[in-house]
């Protein structure tokens, strides 16, 4: 069964990516986790995402497309990375989510590809 783990990061977490003092530690946290995921053989795909201020959002309003800088919704925590994993059930997917180096994770089951 495929599950998507959406890792949310706070503004502080995002700032650690570029902070010379915190950068190494931040990246190490992810590399340990990614190593564990890969070597356990559960990864389908995965990527880190650039910070939310680099996002571009498109919203169609009254038939007109509006292009904006920044994420679609302004919330305290934004998606910082995504992993799709292949595990037998949701219990195991949640266990993997709990191992991630962030404080907020959302887990959803993927809809199987259409025939």
């Amino acid at each position: 069964m495929h599950y998507t783990l959406l890792f949310y990061e706070s503004a502080e977490d995002f700032s650690h990516r570029t902070d010379p003092l915190r950068k190494k530690e931040y990246l190490a946290g992810w590399s340990h986790y990614v190593k564990a995921l890969r070597e356990s053989g559960v990864v389908v795909s995965g990527n880190g995402l650039h910070s939310p201020e680099t996002a571009t959002s498109l919203k169609r309003h009254n038939g007109k497309m509006l292009v904006q800088d920044g994420p679609v919704t302004e919330t305290k925590e934004q998606i910082g990375g995504i992993f799709v994993i292949d595990v037998p059930d949701l219990d195991i997917a949640l266990k993997w989510a709990a191992r991630g180096p962030v404080n907020t994770v959302e887990v959803r089951q993927n809809i199987p590809p259409m025939e």
């Binding site: 590399s31 340990h32 986790y33 190593k35 564990a36 070597e39 709990a98």
Partner: peptide
Amino acid sequence: RSAYSRAIGLCT
């Protein structure tokens, strides 16, 4: 080093 990394990655 490799085993530490994996252990850290598996920690909750």
